[in-house]
């Protein structure tokens, strides 16, 4: 499988593909948002403004379905940023990929720094099969959400945010929730609590990563001759379409769950006080 281009910079292992894709995602999202609010108008909104307003209304609907509007209001921006960022991230990996192959550890370098992951893997392969020529492929262009680190970062950010809100703003109901309905359920509640961010992030990562893996696999079919080529093209058409669908659904699900988790720790229990 493809390796990540990791270089060492001041003692840190920097994944260049993640850096690149994060920057690209952020720029794309920001450009879309700026285009939408370029000519803001109260009475005569343009197409892009209408689109973004529709998105805002959509996210508002999600928020309203999980918690009180007054409580959900501060998180609309967060949810909007999440849904746009994740959607764009999911889509970025679909149209094409940039992959470089390396045979020689000495050539695997960028900006004068060795790509650590490549050199290590090459060494390992050499040790395992000294007689064969080793090849390592590095993926530069991919969905940032197809990286477990990025997906988990977003999920854990939401986890920390929701629990901080619960602890500081909704203390009584938050701690009561752990022994609900009986103290006997404490371990189950704890497991539930800590499994949430894991499933939250891994669901996103798994869906997008699997999609990209399958695209790579379908592309490999071209090596089977003309029939493989035809099948590969047909398969790509179907799978790309499905990936767009999956990417959209995952962006929606992630945002929905974000609002749901926040509401569960922050907004629940206030009404009964």
């Amino acid at each position: 499988m493809h390796e990540a281009p990791i270089i060492q910079l001041g003692g840190l292992n920097i994944d260049l593909s993640i850096v690149l894709m994060l920057i690209v995602s952020c720029i794309v999202v920001f450009i879309i948002a700026r285009l939408a609010v370029r000519n803001l108008s109260v009475e005569n909104p343009g197409k892009m403004q209408n689109f973004l307003e529709w998105l805002v209304e959509f996210v508002r609907g999600l928020s309203n379905s999980t918690m009180d509007w007054k409580k959900g209001k501060p998180f609309i921006s967060l949810a909007l940023t999440l849904i746009m960022f994740i959607f764009v991230s999911n889509m970025l990996g679909l149209p094409f990929g940039v992959v470089t192959g390396y045979h020689d550890a000495s050539k695997a370098e960028i900006f004068g720094k060795p790509i650590v992951s490549v050199t290590e893997t090459l060494e390992k392969l050499h040790q395992q099969h000294p007689d064969q020529e080793a090849e390592v492929e590095v993926a530069w262009w991919k969905s940032p959400t197809a990286d477990a680190n990025a997906s988990m970062a977003l999920a854990i950010m939401v986890f920390l945010l929701s629990h901080a809100l619960g602890i500081f703003k909704n203390t009584k109901a938050y701690f009561k929730h752990y022994v609900h309905p009986y103290p006997f359920f404490l371990p189950i509640n704890l497991i539930e609590t800590f499994s949430k961010p894991l499933t939250h992030g891994m669901r996103l990562f798994g869906n997008i990563f699997a999609g990209e893996v399958l695209i790579a696999v379908i592309l490999k079919l071209t090596s089977l001759g003309p029939a493989g080529g035809v099948f590969s093209v047909l398969g790509l058409i179907v799978w790309q379409g499905f990936s767009i669908f999956v990417g959209t659904i995952q962006a929606f699900v992630f945002t929905m769950l974000t609002l749901l988790y926040i509401s569960q720790t922050y907004a629940v229990g206030h009404d009964h006080d």
């Binding site: 994944d15 920001f30 680190n149 970062a153």
Partner: peptide, 28 residues
């Protein structure tokens, strides 16, 4: 798993959130 990627994602997302909030969502 690299904690560096993890942190970079958080930073990138934070910056994006701040910028969008200030230059896009606020006015909208």
């Amino acid at each position: 798993l690299h904690w560096e990627s993890f942190v970079m994602t958080l930073i990138a997302f934070g910056i994006l959130y701040f910028l969008l909030n200030k230059y896009a969502f606020g006015p909208l």
